[in-house]
Every structure is written in C-alpha cells, then in structure tokens.
C-alpha cells in the first residue's frame, strides 16, 4: 500500500509510530543524498537527516504542516541544518546559488527506484574505461588531472571520454518525461 503525504501526516498527528516508518521510506534516501551534496560525507549526512526526523517527532513539528508543503519542509529543515554546520566551519553557504539548490532539490525529490535503475542501465552501456572516467569525475569528484593520473592516461583522453560519455548519458536519460520537458526548453543545444 502506498502512503501519500496526507496519510503520513494523519498518522503522525495521531501519534502512530508507523507514520514515521512510512515517512522515512518516502523521504529518507532523497534527503540524505540532497544533504550529501553539501556535506560530501554520506554517513555524516545520514546523521543530519536522522536528527531532523527525531526533531520532527519530538517537537511535533508536523502539526502545522499542510500535506502539500511536507516535502519542501523536510528538504528545507535538512538544508538549514547542514548550512548551519557548514557556516560553523567557516564555509560561506550564501555563495550557493538558489537555482543550483532548486535543481538539487528537484532531482532528489523525484528520485526513486526506477530512476536509479535507469541511470545504472545507462552507465552500464558505456565502455568500461569511459564509465570509470565519468564515475571518477561525476561521482567521486576527481579533477581532470587527478583522473588522468589515476588511470595513467592523458588529460585529452579524459576530456574526450567525458564528452562522449556525458552525451550518451544525456541521450539515454532523456527518455524520461521530466527530462524531456527540460530538453524541450533548451532547444537543440549540444555541447559537441
């Protein structure tokens, strides 16, 4: 049975701990990934998000939230919590642009098993070395030079592989409707 935000809120308000279980299933992974985008540390991000859920329960913060606002609320309190930590460490969070945040938020919010599957399939279709290079830069955040050194190849090879690999990913993942809308807005732009 799928529980929507209104169901979940109703359960939380009546004090059912199951409400929390369904809330976690629906949002936990997305929130952790979203927070990890700022913290670059998955286990710390899990801690931050867990703290938000506990706070939500302890302080009955869900009481005044409308079902339509639940998702935005969860993402916002998580963002605030990690921005507080970052600022405490002397990192200037105001330099993160709102549109960048929007993208991170939307992509995390709509992430589900199916999307994950699609992305994995798309990645698996790339030749192995190309996939490793894309993974190194996109997921592990190595620079071009570091990636070249890791694999013992030239920076130019990194450049070429990335351009081809990203283009193929974009073409493959462009099948998704929401991405299509976006591509439509972009016209027929291509980086090649």
């Amino acid at each position: 049975m799928i529980h929507d935000d209104a169901d979940i809120l109703r359960m939380l308000k009546s004090g059912e701990r199951d409400g929390m279980k369904f809330l976690l299933r629906r949002y936990y992974r997305s929130l952790v990934l979203f927070v990890d985008g700022f913290m670059h540390n998955l286990s710390e991000s899990e801690d931050i998000v867990q703290e938000q859920f506990i706070k939500l329960w302890e302080n009955r913060l869900f009481d005044g939230i409308h079902a339509k606002a639940l998702s935005t609320y969860l993402f916002t309190i998580s963002r605030n919590a990690c921005f507080n930590i970052l600022e405490h460490r002397g990192i200037q969070t105001e330099r993160i642009s709102p549109s960048h945040l929007d993208i991170a938020f939307h992509e995390a919010e709509r992430l589900d098993e199916r999307t994950v599957q699609l992305v994995r399939e798309a990645l698996n279709k790339l030749p192995q070395r190309m996939r490793e290079i894309v993974y190194s830069v996109v997921c592990e955040n190595y620079s071009y030079a570091e990636t070249a050194e890791r694999f013992g190849i030239s920076i130019n090879t990194v450049k070429t592989s990335l351009r081809k690999g990203m283009k193929q990913l974009r073409d493959d993942l462009g099948d998704r409707k929401d991405l299509l809308v976006f591509l439509f807005l972009l016209g027929n732009f291509s980086f090649d």
Binding site: R29, V116, L118, L123, L173, F182
Partner: peptide
C-alpha cells in the same frame, strides 16, 4: 541541464549505499 544530469547520475549511484 548539465547539473540536472550530474545530480541525477551521482544521486542514483549513491542511492543503494544508504
């Protein structure tokens, strides 16, 4: 557009590690 794709790919890659 590029960042959207980057987020999608990197989120999906980490999804199962949670």
């Amino acid at each position: 557009q590029l960042f959207r794709l980057l987020y999608r790919v990197s989120y999906a890659e980490k999804y199962n590690r949670i």
